[in-house]
């Protein structure tokens, strides 16, 4: 193995995998422990060990996150969270308790891993739905009102998550 050939690859590895994680963990430390000089001294070995551990546990990120769609989707997520909070409040304080709960299944083509996990988590924050199970690319959703059009909102969310992880929910593969 020629040393001069390996060097660019090593640079690339450090720049793409190691450095972003080092920065992320150091920032996390600063948020958790503050910015006093002693604390930063202690943080150095901890951050290095955490980076090594994360490189062993998750050597590659199969689905790189694209920041622009993520930032563009944040208002939608926050708005849906607001709607679902008001929805719960309206139902719970109503004397008749207007709920018609039931299970519906939703077919998703998002791939396993982070995209699917994010969808399952987000469904629980949508108005009137919680994700209960996942099997054979079908999500079992418990809805608090079976007459509410839950599929439409989930579809919208699925498309946005597809954009964030650069996967196309319709084809199931990368864009």
């Amino acid at each position: 193995m020629d040393g001069s050939m390996a060097r660019p690859a090593l640079h690339k590895y450090f720049g793409q995998r190691v450095l972003p994680r080092l920065i992320l963990f150091e920032l996390l430390w600063l948020v958790l422990a503050g910015t006093s000089p002693q604390s930063i001294m202690i943080s150095l070995p901890v951050v290095i060990v955490a980076t090594i551990a994360s490189l062993i546990l998750a050597p590659t990120l199969r689905y790189p996150i694209s920041p622009l769609p993520l930032i563009r989707s944040l208002p939608l997520f926050l708005f849906l969270s607001l709607v679902s909070g008001f929805d719960v409040m309206k139902r719970v304080f109503h004397p008749d308790l207007p709920i018609r709960p039931g299970l519906i299944s939703y077919h998703t083509r998002l791939p396993h891993g982070p995209p699917l996990a994010l969808l399952l988590n987000c469904i629980s924050l949508l108005p009137g739905t919680i994700s209960a199970d996942y099997r054979d690319s079908c999500i079992l959703v418990h809805t608090i009102d079976t007459e509410q059009p839950a599929e439409k909102v989930i579809k919208k969310l699925e498309d946005r998550i597809g954009e964030i992880f650069r996967v196309d929910p319709a084809s199931g593969g990368a864009l």
Partner: peptide, 22 residues
């Protein structure tokens, strides 16, 4: 209130997750 009034685990989860997070 939802945790107390709603009839089963699933509906109580709705109240707990959404209302408290907001």
């Amino acid at each position: 209130i939802g945790l107390l009034r709603l009839p089963d685990i699933y509906t109580r989860l709705h109240a707990l997750t959404k209302a408290d997070n907001l």
